[in-house]
């Protein structure tokens, strides 16, 4: 079930916290199960407070799950696993008394990278994330977007196999979002696996291969984005011409006039198979047949409201 190509697997991960005063257990994660395959971009989607960051903290060992298991390539996650993970926290804050180069040198040392390699990669990465000329600038002078970009450079410094990014597009302007998106897509091309959380659907639709929806501390849906969307055909729209107005009610009842054509929406393929021959027999020409799918937003809202 958990094939060789799975990089990260979480099985029924649960975590609760104690409330401050009454010491009551408050469950935050009630069963997170997901599988991240090698070389894919996995989107972890959920509203604020759904449990995305808590899940990521469990993966990184900042929190210990009460129940469940977390494995990387079939082995429990440990310190050695973190050598192969690059992490960008949500709204990152770095030591503001350091410059960008000093910070990346620290990160390089924590990954036990040779100093020369760190220096070499620092220049490359700062250029890649769009910060080529601020290497010696103190981080306290960085804007939110610059900090986010530096965080991404730090996550990539150890040349990780798995990138875990918590809300990576937060604080970026549209151009910055596009640049980071392109950078992450390039990382996937190089064989990196990317796991990122977001509550912004547009980011997900544009990038991810697979998606996991988390709500109320549980994974409510998981699968390939293309499958989720293709399995959610709501209706089929037929656009046709060539049927005189007086025959419309008989051939295609309910068809609406749209510019110089007619548009008919049927519920499913069975209805399509019934209507289509009638239109053609009456001398109509089919301009288009379009399955109307649910958008990711609709799928997500359905999961959240369910």
């Amino acid at each position: 079930m958990w094939g060789d190509r799975d990089v990260l697997t979480l099985r029924n991960v649960c975590k609760s916290f104690r409330s401050d005063f009454l010491r009551r257990q408050i469950p935050v994660l009630k069963g997170i199960t997901m599988t991240v395959g090698r070389g894919e971009i996995y989107g972890f989607l959920g509203v604020n407070g759904a449990g995305k960051t808590t899940t990521i903290k469990c993966i990184l060992g900042l929190l210990t799950p009460d129940r469940g298991s977390i494995e990387m390539e079939g082995r429990p996650l440990d310190r050695q696993s973190r050598q192969r993970i690059g992490f960008l926290p949500e709204n990152p804050y770095f030591y503001d008394y350091l410059s960008a180069r000093e910070y990346l040198a620290l990160v390089g040392a924590l990954f036990s990278l040779p100093s020369r390699e760190t220096a070499c990669r620092t220049g490359e990465l700062l250029a890649q994330v769009g910060l080529p000329e601020v290497g010696s600038l103190k981080l306290r002078k960085f804007s939110k977007g610059m900090t986010q970009r530096l965080g991404l450079a730090a996550a990539l410094l150890g040349d990780p196999d798995l990138l875990i990014l918590d809300e990576p597009f937060s604080g970026l302007d549209p151009i910055g979002r596009k640049e980071i998106r392109d950078l992450l897509l390039a990382c996937r091309e190089r064989g990196k696996t990317i796991f990122f959380s977001s509550h912004i659907l547009q980011d997900m639709e544009l990038m991810v291969d697979r998606i996991g929806i988390v709500h109320g501390g549980q994974t409510t849906r998981e699968g390939k984005l293309a499958d989720l969307i293709s399995h959610s055909v709501q209706a089929i729209q037929i656009v046709f011409t060539g049927i005189p107005p007086d025959r419309i009610a008989e051939v295609a009842p309910g068809a609406l006039e749209r510019d110089e054509a007619r548009e008919l929406t049927v519920d499913d393929e069975a209805q399509l198979a019934e209507v289509l021959p009638r239109i053609m027999a009456a001398g109509g020409q089919i301009r288009s047949i379009t399955p109307l799918k649910r958008t990711l937003e609709e799928i997500f809202l359905r999961e959240v409201k369910a």
Partner: peptide
Amino acid sequence: ERRTLFNILSKPVS
């Protein structure tokens, strides 16, 4: 408080 700890402990640092 500043969450800089997350950046350190998420690396291969015990």
